[in-house]
Design a binder for these strands. Structure first.
Lengths: 176, 176
DNA sequence: AAGACCATGTAACAGGTTACATGATTAT
DNA sequence: ATAATCATGTAACCTGTTACATGGTCTT
């Protein structure tokens, strides 16, 4: 594939657990060629400049070696949750709006997973299919958990907002 | 708090969605002081060198400003899933062992969330409690989804491994 | 006395994003 | 024509981890 194709393929099939930028892809492809892990050839026909890369035997051995290594869990970071942790500094209404936005995004993401499932099930005979499906399944379960949490969070913010409004109203009434 | 305390507090209360290393914490605290967002004083009594930091008015304003800004979602990266995506290159038995390891970690993490819930519920009167609880709730739902997925994955790997073994046996029988 | 933990910090490095630069081709 | 998309690449920058260095204190 070309660097461009790789980016598109990642976005299409693994977007729920992996992403890469061009700034990573192009230099890395060159490095892989330099190390003899990939080879590069110019696209045969066509007018546009296209550099097609393919894996070498050495590259595949290195891939297998890497795949066999257990993953060391890296640090987690969820900025939305960190902001919520200090949530009392803002108002509940602000959190509600933000949660609504996140919910819309989550619904869009869930729809994308649905499309991907249809696509994978149409190609169920593909020998890689079971592995692709189990990574997709992770996305589905995570997506479901995310949506449930957002609903609970929305309910909480409504509750908190009501409390805040009451306090404000009472204070106003007392003042007037 | 001191840099050391901050690290401990993060590990204890927000480990399911945030982490920091000393290499971040100490330089950033100095930078915050330089910008007038925090102030630093040496620990009053005691023999050990302790530098205590507290937020300034300016710092709190900056915190509020940051909290009000909507989060821009960064690129997702789950190395375990990426390895699974190319899972056919390895054997199903390898994935099974790895999944078992992940499951043990997930159970440990779930237990930690349970402790944290008990701690938070004991301090339910704390005005920040609702916000802390909703971030914890995220961890719980995510943890549950993770465990369910691992169970499904384990079942799949058993199935795939059975298939692989049968093919090997048949081939061996034919050869002998 | 040894080992664990408290406590602060720095330097080197790795990993990654964003913005920029360039130009061809295709669709409206 | 013009906008979108195809296609490749670089440079500057930011963020973050790991490993190292140092020394005090507490527990066994």
């Amino acid at each position: 594939m070309s660097g461009y194709d790789i980016k598109k393929a990642i976005e299409q099939s693994t977007s729920n657990f992996w992403s890469e930028s061009y700034g990573q892809i192009y230099p890395i492809l060159q490095e892989l060629v330099r190390q003899g892990l990939a080879r590069r050839r110019a696209a045969p026909a066509g007018a546009r400049e296209r550099q097609l890369y393919s894996i070498t035997g050495k590259g595949r051995r290195e891939l297998r070696r890497w795949l066999a290594q257990p993953t060391v869990p890296g640090g987690v970071r969820n900025e939305s949750l960190l902001k919520l942790f200090f949530g009392r500094e803002s108002g509940a209404a602000t959190h509600r709006r933000e949660a609504e936005r996140l919910r819309r995004d989550a619904v869009t993401a869930a729809a994308h997973l649905g499309e991907l499932r249809a696509l994978l099930e149409a190609n169920a005979s593909e020998p890689d299919a079971p592995y692709w499906l189990i990574t997709l399944r992770f996305g589905e379960l995570q997506s479901r958990a995310q949506l449930q949490w957002l609903d609970e969070a929305l309910a909480l913010f409504d509750e908190l907002d009501k409390g805040e409004r009451q306090r404000t109203t009472r204070r106003t009434r007392r003042r007037s």
